[in-house]
């Protein structure tokens, strides 16, 4: 595939990104199995071309959009973001993509829309994990409209200078860096503008452990483990742990979205 380039962005962190090998060989993508190595092993079976994204619901111009319509080459930006997994590990990833707001504006947001729902491809014959009832397929996630329109939220189509590898959610995925990784839904086939809070797969499965917001928050523990600290992948055997930052360090940009909300209740 052709190399991708994205314009540098002031939203990028200057922390050292993880290597392409680390980012593409250690993934949670349960559609291909629950092991961290399952996605790299099995994701090649997924057909990503042709691909279209259905945008529907409260959109002015609903319809089927191609990846290149949503993320044209000349609009691509490089966004080097921290990624914090709910399992208390983290990485730094140089994504290439476009602001989610640009995509939503392309489809036109009706004034009654309050939320955005996303859906991953459901194709068990190419995604072997979907043959097992590990999760309620297809994988679904959602954002409040103001979260979705925030300039930090992007749809990524590339990684380093490569088109997005399948195991990382090809051909197009969400990246919301201030939320736990599972919110950043992969291999999106459907985006729905809606006035109701969307169903999210993990929240539906275990609401006591996974909330709708899922903002990175060291003060609110996951019931099974503490969220106070994290281990950076690639830190070596004795790299130790670092403190987890509220909103994954993006508080300055996003904290105002949650003004007045009790984040211990709305976790």
């Amino acid at each position: 595939a052709v190399a991708l380039t994205g314009k540098p962005s002031s939203f990028s962190t200057d922390e050292k990104p993880n290597s392409l090998e680390e980012i593409t060989n250690y993934n949670n993508f349960y559609e291909f199995g629950t092991g961290k190595e399952d996605p790299v092993r099995y994701a090649a079976a997924m057909t990503t071309d042709p691909w279209s994204v259905q945008i529907d619901g409260l959109a002015e111009r609903p319809g089927s959009y191609g990846v290149e319509d949503l993320a044209p080459d000349n609009a691509l930006e490089e966004r080097i973001y921290r990624l914090r997994c709910v399992e208390a590990w983290s990485m730094v990833i140089p994504w290439i993509g476009v602001p989610l707001s640009s995509v939503l504006n392309k489809a036109g947001v009706q004034s009654s829309a309050k939320y955005v729902a996303f859906e991953t491809l459901n194709r068990p014959e190419e995604m072997r994990g979907q043959s097992y009832p590990i999760l309620d397929w297809p994988y679904r996630e959602g954002l409040r409209l103001d979260e979705a329109m925030h300039p930090l939220a992007i749809l990524a189509t590339g990684l380093y200078s490569d088109p997005l590898p399948n195991q990382n959610g090809a051909p197009i995925r969400l990246v919301v860096p201030w939320k736990y990784g599972f919110k950043s839904i992969k291999s999106i086939v459907r985006i729905t503008l809606t006035d109701k809070q969307p169903v999210c797969t993990w929240q539906k499965m275990q609401a006591s452990e996974y909330g709708f917001y899922a903002n990175v928050n060291p003060e609110v523990d996951h019931p099974r483990w503490s969220q106070a600290t994290e281990r950076r992948i690639g830190g070596g055997l004795f790299g130790g742990r670092q403190e987890t930052l509220k909103f994954n360090g993006y508080g300055e940009q996003v904290a105002s979205l949650y003004a007045g909300m009790d984040l211990a209740k709305n976790y």
Binding site: E21, N25, Y26, K36, E37, W89, R231, I233, L237, G239
Partner: peptide, 12 residues
């Protein structure tokens, strides 16, 4: 461990 045969997260 010493041969580098462990995965991306050798600690785990």
């Amino acid at each position: 461990t010493f041969a580098g045969n462990l995965g991306i997260d050798p600690v785990r």
